[in-house]
Write a protein that binds this DNA or RNA. Structure first.
Lengths: 115, 115
DNA sequence: CGGAATCCAGGACGATACTG
DNA sequence: CAGTATCGTCCTGGATTCCG
């Protein structure tokens, strides 16, 4: 069990969405459901192992849902649960801030070149 | 240099504020400036090494500012830069979501006991 | 008080191969 | 297609000691 004492709410968020991949995965899925292979292509550097592991943990924490569609070929789709949807404003803000951070870095670099 | 290609803005945010400690540190400092020792007490489990390391990196990325006050005793204070302030809505949202996540977990646990 | 330096364990993360 | 299994590396993070 993960019975710990938390003195800071931020710590909880980090535990659930932290790490290198989870927030990126969540952000994609927050747009629409995606299949396993699609996610791999959206996040080129991720390995199958890390993708699977992250998806399983997000599922355990109740943020995403795994649906298997029966058919001639295997199809698995991942989508946000109702609870996962509650995190999408946070993910959107992370994305926004990331963009502005990149703009700022590009700007600083340009100024550096001019001297 | 950290010259990489980013295909996702979320990745950038994770790189700057990711890891176990940075977001927690930022969240505290976003409330008001804090001294080194104060931060250690606010985040009981952190070691000096990790605190110092995180503070240095946040400083490098332009999010926080380190001010030394001369006097009989050494006093160092950390505060958000103007740019760091731009991240405080994100930090606040992380805190909010962490709280609601804890409430949800407590609820689920209570239901489990009832059966 | 506010650190720096060193050493070390454990876990995150990755590469590769294989499967129903 | 959507994964498992195994193995290995790296690097985060911790313990300890020392410093101006």
């Amino acid at each position: 069990m993960r019975k710990k004492l938390y003195n800071c709410p931020v710590e909880l968020t980090v535990e659930v969405m932290g790490g290198r991949w989870k927030s990126r995965i969540l952000w994609h899925i927050s747009k629409r459901p995606y299949r396993y292979g699609e996610l791999r292509r959206l996040i080129p550097n991720i390995t199958q192992k890390m993708l699977t592991q992250a998806l399983r943990e997000l599922e355990e924490d109740g943020l995403i849902e795994r649906k298997v569609f029966e058919g001639s070929i295997l199809k698995v789709e991942y989508s946000l649960t109702d609870y996962g949807v509650s995190a999408s404003p946070l993910l959107e803000l992370m994305s926004q801030w990331g963009k502005s951070h990149k703009q700022r870095e590009d700007l600083l670099e340009a100024e550096e070149k001019k001297g």
